[in-house]
Every structure is written in structure tokens, then in C-alpha cells.
Design a protein around this nucleic acid. Structure first.
Length: 308
DNA sequence: CTCGATCCCTGGACGC
DNA sequence: TGCGTCCAGGGATCGA
């Protein structure tokens, strides 16, 4: 799942590979994940890719203006990889992978291909004020923000810390894996309310989050099932996961089996010993489960989740 | 403001 | 082997 470290890895790879190249033409297949497919076909051909940057979980292909038009309007192709998106340059001769939806022919004989089985990604060509408005919707970059700013964005929020970490309008770039890993490192249960965390906890979370993101970038991200970088290589950080996808396995700090619960609608992995639940959380959860069981009497037991 | 529910989509895991 | 069912997961959106 591409989160900040994975997208950063792809952005660096693409910057190396395709910055300075021009797009000759665009071919679009399925387009339901593209904001305005027509604008890509109209605006991209003939444009040079100046730089490739990461913005939260988006790839930002910043484009040079056409020579004739004097306007100095900023423009970019935004690409969100969703869950299964891949963006990589390939030789024209290479067979197209299944689920290839966008192909951009480049001026060096290669093609920049977007492949996305589930199409949970997003693509949009944006320029000028529209681009600025779109970028302003998102929160601060967790690697650029200072502790005071981070604290301010969390403190005074009544949502659960897990929800806040995942909210791209609060912080841009954090997803489920790095939220859980950071909370484990900082010993904070995902169901705690942001407003209830003290200065020490927030400082610890800030350091944990930055440290984990930086290390994950060095290791070129986590490859759980689909992620590949711009060169088609998987990342290595999944070998360093302490809680994510480790349900039932021992916490590396205290050997307590890692558990998985739903917090803020997302599965959340944590150590019940190192990360103590907030007051009332267990009881509220049990009550909710009982209510669900009453609503659906035939679904009392689900498939046993065996550990890998 | 915050919550849960719902939808989007497909491959993979699982039960039979 | 194959078919049906469930599920993951980021994000938008809607109603409570």
C-alpha cells in the first residue's frame, strides 16, 4: 500500500528516470479514476516533465509550460496510487501488464505506464489556482512539520489519534501501516482521543513517526502485496514491521500477542500490554459488538483468523 | 466536529 | 478444480 515512504521512493525513482523528458502522446483505457480524462489528452502532449515530487501520498509531475504560451502558470499531473497503483517507465517493446490504464509516450522511446488493478487511485491534470486550491486541502507533511505544529494539529481534536494520523487534511502521507507502527513505538493505543494525549506522548509520537518514516524511506518502503517502485523493485521495510499484519505474534518488546481491532473504521494492530486502552474503550467495544450480534443473529462467528 | 455506514474495485483467501 | 463469499483498504460522501 503506497503511503508516504512508498510514494517518496517512487517519486525519487521517477525524478531520476523521467525528469526532463517530454510527453508525446497519451493513451487512456479505463478512466473512471481520472478527474477529467479529456484534459489529460488535451494538455499533456508536448509538455515536458520538469520534476517529480511527492505531496502527501500524491505524486506530483510538475510540467513545463508550452513555449508559445507566455503564461507562467504552475501545472502538474497528480497521481495517487491508491492501493494497487504502479507508475513506471517501460520500453515500448515490453508487453503491457494487465490493468494498464494510462500510457504516456515519452520522447526517449519509453512509455510511462500507470497500472492499477483496483483503480482506487486517482489522476488529475491541474493548473493555476485549481492546483493551488487542491494542494491546500491537505495538512502538513509529517517530515517537515515541527513539534509545535504537530502538537497543535492533534491537540484539541476529539477524534481518535488513529483517525487523526490517517486524516490527510491533518497530516498528509500517513496511512495504516505507519500509523500503527508509530503508535506502537510511542506506546499509545490507537483509540486514545487526540485531545487526551499529553505533551510527552505527543512528543514521543512525533519522534516515532518521523523516525519510522525516515527509516522506511531508506529501505524504499513496505511491500505487502503489490507495491513496487519506479524500477519495479519491492521495498524492504515490511521486514521491520513490529505490529502491522502481525496479529497473534508476540510483541517484540514484551512477547504479548499482537491484537487487531477496528478503530476509526480501519483495522489497527497494537500490543495490548504496551499500548493501554483508554478508559471506557473496552466496554464500549463490547457493547457495540453485542449490539451487532443482536442485529445479525446468524453471524456470531467469523472465519478463524489464523496467523501467518 | 465526529461518527458509522456505504460505495468504489479486484484479487486472494477460504469454505465447501 | 471450481464456484461462491468475504474482505482489505484510501478516500469521498452522506446522514445521524
Amino acid at each position: 500500500m503506497p503511503e508516504l515512504p512508498e510514494v517518496e521512493t517512487v517519486a525519487r525513482g521517477l525524478q531520476e528516470e523521467i525528469a526532463g523528458r517530454s510527453i508525446l502522446s497519451v493513451t487512456i483505457g479505463k478512466s473512471d479514476f481520472i478527474d477529467d480524462p479529456g484534459s489529460l489528452e488535451k494538455e499533456l502532449p508536448g509538455r515536458k516533465i520538469r520534476t517529480v515530487e511527492r505531496y502527501g501520498k500524491f505524486l506530483l509531475l510538475r510540467l513545463a509550460n508550452r513555449e508559445k504560451a507566455g503564461a507562467s502558470e504552475e501545472s502538474a499531473l497528480l497521481v495517487h496510487l491508491g492501493m494497487t497503483g504502479l507508475l513506471m517507465p517501460r520500453a515500448v517493446s515490453e508487453p503491457q501488464a494487465k490493468h494498464t490504464h494510462v500510457v504516456m509516450q515519452l520522447d526517449d522511446g519509453r512509455e510511462l505506464r500507470y497500472v492499477d488493478a483496483r483503480r482506487f487511485g486517482r489522476m488529475a491534470y491541474l493548473a493555476g489556482e485549481k492546483l493551488q486550491t487542491e494542494l491546500r486541502r491537505f495538512g502538513v507533511d509529517p517530515l517537515e512539520t515541527r513539534l509545535e505544529e504537530f502538537t497543535k494539529s492533534i491537540h484539541g481534536r476529539r477524534a481518535r489519534i488513529k483517525a487523526l494520523l490517517l486524516d490527510q487534511h491533518v497530516l498528509r502521507g500517513v496511512g495504516n501501516i505507519y500509523a500503527d507502527e508509530s503508535l506502537w513505538k510511542a506506546r499509545i493505543h490507537p483509540a486514545h482521543l487526540g485531545a487526551r494525549l499529553n505533551q510527552g506522548q505527543l512528543a514521543g509520537l512525533y519522534r516515532a513517526l518521523q523516525g519510522i518514516l525516515r527509516k522506511a524511506i531508506v529501505l524504499r518502503g513496505s511491500s505487502i502485496s503489490d507495491f513496487l517502485d519506479a524500477e519495479g523493485m519491492p521495498g524492504d521495510y515490511q521486514r521491520h514491521h513490529r505490529v502491522y499484519d502481525r496479529e497473534g505474534k508476540g510483541c517484540v518488546r514484551c512477547k504479548t500477542p499482537i491484537r487487531r481491532v477496528i478503530v476509526a473504521g480501519r483495522s489497527s494492530y497494537f500490543c495490548p500490554q504496551c499500548q493501554r486502552a483508554p478508559r471506557g474503550w473496552r466496554k464500549a467495544r463490547q457493547a457495540k459488538r453485542a449490539k451487532q450480534a443482536r442485529a445479525r443473529p446468524n453471524s456470531g462467528r467469523t472465519r478463524s483468523d489464523n496467523q501467518m
